[in-house]
Each structure stands twice: as structure tokens, then as C-alpha cells.
């Protein structure tokens, strides 16, 4: 899948490959020790710059909703 910025594409692919392998071979079997942090860090540096360049609302992006009381409730 494409990254938001073509500059981050290669870093994203490397990280995604590491993550997908870790997720199926380790995480789902109960081994939660992170193995992709180096690749994630360089990929994140690139994405953060792209997010800034695209003028994305950082406050909205960073705000946690899942698991908080900001989640919408079922209509009663």
C-alpha cells in the first residue's frame, strides 16, 4: 500500500514487512517483545515530516478516542 509521501514508501515497505512477520510469528503467539523499532523510528521521522507538509490537523490526529469517553454511544 502507498504511503502518504513517495519519500516514505521504501521505509514503509521495510517496516511493514518486519511488522507483519513479527505480528503473525511472535505477537499472536504471546511474544510481545518489539523487533521492528529501528525500522519504525526512521519510517516515523519521514511520516511526521509528511504529515506536517500536508497540513494535517495534529491535535485531531493525536487525540485518543478508542477506549476513552469520547467514543460515541449507541442511541438508546
Amino acid at each position: 500500500m502507498n504511503s502518504i509521501s513517495p519519500e516514505c514508501q521504501e521505509l514503509k515497505e521495510k517496516y511493514d514487512a518486519c511488522f507483519n512477520k513479527w505480528f503473525s510469528e511472535k505477537f499472536l503467539k504471546g511474544n510481545t517483545k518489539d523487533e521492528c523499532s529501528g525500522l519504525f523510528e526512521v519510517y516515523q521521522e519521514c511520516v511526521k515530516k509528511a504529515v506536517k507538509d500536508h497540513k494535517i490537523d495534529l491535535w485531531e490526529l493525536e487525540k485518543p478516542v478508542l477506549g476513552t469517553d469520547k467514543e460515541k454511544k449507541d442511541p438508546s
Binding site: 517496516y15 505477537f27 519504525f40 504529515v51
Partner: peptide, 10 residues
Amino acid sequence: LSEDVISRKV
């Protein structure tokens, strides 16, 4: 069009 991870932790 695109998909990126912004944060991830266990």
C-alpha cells in the same frame, strides 16, 4: 489512497 502507521505500542 494511502495508509501509514502513526503510533504503535504493546
